[in-house]
Simulated scan of single mutants.
Amino acid sequence: MRTHWRTGLEDFSDCLLTGLLVALASVPVVTAAPAFAAGCRALDRSRHGIARPLWTTFWADFRQAVRGSVAFGLLGLLAAAMFAVDLDIVGATPGAGVLRPALWLLAGVAAVVAVRTCEVVARGEASWRRAVVTAARETSPGNALLLAGAIGLAVVLVWMLPILAFVIAGPLALAAVATGGRR
């Protein structure tokens, strides 16, 4: 069966629109996690042809995901601030050659768990605390490496072309959905 080229273009435009919606909903930085979870849910529905249009389903999913997510968002901000301080401190120590890669590895693991947590919330988990545990337990090493590669590529793309920060959450949400626990 041959698919039409417009189907691929529709998926691509849904991915970019989701990235823009996630960026818009993430303006108050604390809401970035529920915005990403809503993006994962909207893209999963879009991929399966359920619940169009994407704009309205995204905002409904965002309102649902934002409940109870403030603590998760604040902990994420605190972890990012601590990572920045730790990198600065490690740079001045004699063991920086060993500690700096260990810190980056720890940050990568935390980023994978955070992205997978948002994907678990998108699957319908109401509690963010249980979603963290489920994400850590269900993520296979292979899927974690794929997701870490997607996160790393997203970081490099935004570093190279900062305007992509407005749409990069869409492809990253698609990667989270693709490596997630859906059957």
Rank of each mutant, 00 (worst) to 15 (best):
A81T: 14
D11A: 15
V90T: 12
D44C: 12
L103T: 09
I151C: 00
A79W: 04
W59D: 13
L146N: 02
F58C: 09
W104T: 05
T117L: 04
S46G: 13
L17D: 03
G108Y: 09
A122G: 13
G152S: 07
G124L: 12
A148M: 01
S69T: 01
G73K: 10
F166I: 14
A126Q: 07
L16R: 01
D61C: 07
A32N: 00
D44S: 15
R123F: 06
V113L: 11
W159R: 07
R6V: 11
V112H: 08
V22P: 01
L99F: 12
P53S: 12
L172K: 06
D14M: 00
V155S: 07
V156N: 02
D61G: 08
G142I: 11
V85Q: 04
L78M: 14
M82P: 10
V30W: 12
V70S: 06
V109E: 02
R100D: 11
L54C: 11
T3G: 05
A38H: 09
H48N: 03
A135V: 02
A114W: 01
P162Y: 00
M160P: 00
R137G: 01
I168K: 06
V133G: 11
A136E: 02
A135Y: 02
V66D: 10
A33G: 08
D44V: 12
P34C: 03
R6H: 07
V177F: 08
R123P: 03
E10I: 02
L172V: 03
A51V: 12
V156D: 03
P34T: 03
L16Q: 08
A114V: 06
G108I: 02
M82A: 15
V132H: 00
M82G: 15
A60R: 15
Q64L: 14
R137L: 08
V66K: 04
P141C: 11
S13K: 04
V85R: 14
R41H: 15
T179K: 09
R41K: 15
A23C: 14
L147S: 04
L43S: 13
L106Y: 13
A165H: 03
A107L: 10
V177T: 12
V22W: 00
I163Y: 05
F12E: 02
A126M: 10
R129P: 03
R137S: 04
H4W: 10
V132R: 07
D88C: 05
L77A: 15
A96H: 09
L106I: 14
I89T: 13
P53A: 13
R2K: 09
